[in-house]
Amino acid sequence: MDDGGLDVAACLERVRERDDAAARALVEHLYPLVIKIVRAHLPRRVAEEDLAQDIFLKVFERLGQYRAEVPLEHWVSRVAVTTCLDQLRAQKRRPEFRWADLSETEAEMLDAVLTSESEPHPAQGLAAKEIVTRLLECLSPQDRLVVTLLDLEEKSLAEIRRITGWNETLIKVRAFRARQKLKKHLAALEKGRLK
């Protein structure tokens, strides 16, 4: 199995023999995948590098359990997502998100989304991302995970099933409930705007 210049199977064999050069090559190879997951699910106040390091340490500790029945990237994604989920569980959920919490740019952007039918300007992407992140912080870790995977990363149900280990019915139910909660938070936010 040769993947992006790295012979993953040979590399894994050497990592199992505790070869440090092979372990470093594996970290460099998997880093873009891991950091993408970390950035998508990162709890506030947790440094992304610390979380990425925890994920790699778990990967190395559990490498003996990896049987190559699935691609290594799938297995690592699952370790990364469950580690992020554990971190999110440890973090206290934001009780609510108020209009007063928005910066001027964010308030302007959300006001435009609430009052017009048009799509936000591409330059407002970062403001939208910040609002979305804060809204997701009001959800439970599982709800947040499912909405992030479905609506922000546009993963299919099959992919989410593979990453989380949840069945498709559970994913659909969680997504439905999570969106209902998001609607409530958006309604409360809009009330704050009208005050």
Binding site: Y31, I35, A52, V132, D151
Partner: peptide
Amino acid sequence: WNRLARAARRAPAEQPAEAPFGFSHRV
């Protein structure tokens, strides 16, 4: 929500995806 999510998806990546210097050595 759909419009916010679409706009958030279009947001540019803030940071590079390569491992920071020394990261693999530390891990």
